[in-house]
Design a protein around this nucleic acid. Structure first.
Length: 106
DNA sequence: GACGTGACAGCGC
DNA sequence: GGCGCTGCCACGT
């Protein structure tokens, strides 16, 4: 079974999903933020992989996850519509306005 | 098991 | 975070 840092892959994925579920409507979180909450700030790239493999049943608000510069997921045009529906503001370059919508956990 | 890949971050400019 | 480069680390081949 694949493991890293003592955490099984399935557990890692589950924890990622739980955190994403907690992102409030109208706000966005970065991959680095989620990785930091998990106690593994170096594993931001694993977050994207976990979301990519997320089962449809869990119904995650994964459109609220963006990269550190506010960029959206490549090849997923629908993401912007979902965010616009939550009144999330975008900049001229197509990036989310993190100043207004970044999830403030503390 | 080496090698390329990727829904990334941080740092420098 | 505007852009480019390097470091990361699990995955599939």
């Amino acid at each position: 079974m694949g493991e890293f840092a003592g955490m099984k892959r399935a557990d890692f994925y589950t924890r990622v999903y739980q955190i994403v579920q907690a992102i409030p409507r109208g706000q966005v979180a970065t991959y680095g933020q989620i990785a930091w909450i998990l106690g593994k700030p170096q594993c931001s790239r694993r977050i994207g992989q976990a979301l990519y493999h997320a089962p449809h049943e869990v119904n995650l608000p994964c459109h609220r996850v963006v990269n550190s510069r506010g960029r959206l997921v490549p090849h997923w045009a629908e993401q912007k519509d979902l965010l616009l529906r939550e009144e999330v503001a975008f900049k001229n370059n197509g990036c989310v306005d993190l100043k207004k919508h970044l999830w403030k956990i503390f």
